[in-house]
Design a protein around this nucleic acid. Structure first.
Lengths: 111, 111
DNA sequence: TTCGTAGTACGACAAACGTCGTACAAGCCT
DNA sequence: AGGCTTGTACGACGTTTGTCGTACTACGAA
């Protein structure tokens, strides 16, 4: 399921991520229909650079945080790469918009 | 939570439905991130007239069907009104688009 | 080398969710 | 009236999901 590799803008080892062609819109909606994950995505959308997992104020434990980042990555919403002990995340904005035109924009604009 | 009444285009008693101002985008995403419910919404989007619950080929039992229609109604996505023994559903397209501009369109266009 | 930092993996647990069957209510038709 | 149709209500069930703690790995800094 996880096939290709994420591009790693600042070097570092990219984590496996799914091809967006294999992701259905239901999976994306399900992933984003969770408060913590939506907060992560909103934060990433505002950020200009990839963010390390620890840079978020999520109010959940480390393991829960890890869980949500994995769900987002496996749903094709974010890409991640490791650098040192940190794991950086960024939105797959372009690919997402190509696969589901207007969807991310509409969700981020909501509220 | 369920306050106002749905308009009933063809007469019939409208069921209570939430004010869209009280609905968050997460709730909508969660509701639509389920295959059966997304099928219902897609069918309603194609239909020109409200559809009775029995008009759908959902492949689930009657009680499961009832459950999904309620989730959609309580999430502000559909409105329902009763007429005789039937319960008709329609998308709250206009309100939804006002509350979450572009969201419904993007989801329906996906795939 | 030793310590601290960043994050994962695994197992546990409770709550939410999707599913169903049965029993029931209300309206239509003969 | 009686039966059929359409759909609900309720309770049960198994699964998924979100949460945590503990133990662990890997890297960087003192």
């Amino acid at each position: 399921m996880l096939t290709s590799r994420a591009r790693s803008p600042a070097a570092g080892k990219a984590l496996e991520q799914p091809d967006l062609r294999n992701i259905g819109v239901e999976q994306v909606l399900r992933a984003l229909g969770e408060p913590v994950r939506l907060r992560i995505v909103r934060a990433l959308a505002c950020a200009e650079h990839p963010m390390s997992c620890g840079a978020f104020e999520l109010g959940v434990s480390k393991s829960t945080s890890t869980h949500h980042f994995r769900v987002l990555r496996e749903s094709g919403i974010i890409s991640q790469y490791e650098e040192g002990t940190a794991r950086y995340s960024e939105l797959r904005t372009t690919e997402l918009d190509e696969r589901f035109p207007g969807l991310l924009r509409a969700i981020l604009d909501a509220e």
